[in-house]
Amino acid sequence: MASMMQEFTKGLWKELPPFRLVLGLCPVLAVTNSANNGLGMGLAVIFVLTLSNVIISLVRHIIPKKVRIACFIAIAASLVVSVEMLMQAFSYPLYQQLGIFVPLIVVNCLILGRAEAFAAKNPPLLALADGLGMGIGFTLSLTFLGGLRELFGVGTLFGASMFGPDFKPFAFMVQAPGAFVCLGLILAGMNFLTMWQAKRKGQTVDPILDAGCKGCSACRKLDEIANQKKLEKLQPAKG
């Protein structure tokens, strides 16, 4: 039980998906022009992530190692199709707002990353806790970023006016550049916080400096190759 709690809570702060693991950036940037959209996207991701984690964990002994990525994608894709149909049936306006990013949940690194890094190695209950925690962390981050951008870019929060009629909205925030800059500043803030905490405790911790998608095997492979190249470059200098 204790370990389940631990797996659940790590997604909420220690390994907060978009801000710490830097996973699944496309929807984080694209749908956070309002708090509402961020929340809706987050709920869809919770559904897919939790179920895919559980299903993959259940069949983890059956899937052959060589074709595991394809299997994960197929499982995630069928869940995404169900989400699409559910959204079309019950919240069509939101479905239209999110547009192309609902089907694109299937290629979100978060889903594949958690499948590869966690669900494929752990029993279903732990995978459930992990998926739920990560999903909720993702949703909260998206809602936070969406709220921030909506507040300054339009002057509303969840559609309710916050600053009165005299407020001149800062339109930069709801457009594409604002998304990139906002996320960059939040990441820098998270890094700063981590380092400050570590310093207070007398530890030295390296901040998360690289766009990781570390959980996703594909990107890890590229990282390894890049490191190898660097080593090769360094060697003659050393010798």
């Binding site: 830097v22 457009q175 594409a176 550049p177 604002g178 998304a179 990139f180 800059v181 996320l183 960059g184 500043l185 990441l187 820098a188 803030g189 890094n191 700063f192 380092m195 901040p207 998360i208 400096l209 690289d210 766009a211």
Partner: peptide, 23 residues
């Protein structure tokens, strides 16, 4: 640059400025 800005954060901000230019 400040240590907390290195890597991804400054990359994202740079992307934002580029996006502004492309607008």
């Amino acid at each position: 640059m400040p240590k907390s800005m290195q890597g991804t954060p400054i990359g994202l901000i740079m992307a934002g400025i580029m996006s502004l230019a492309f607008m």
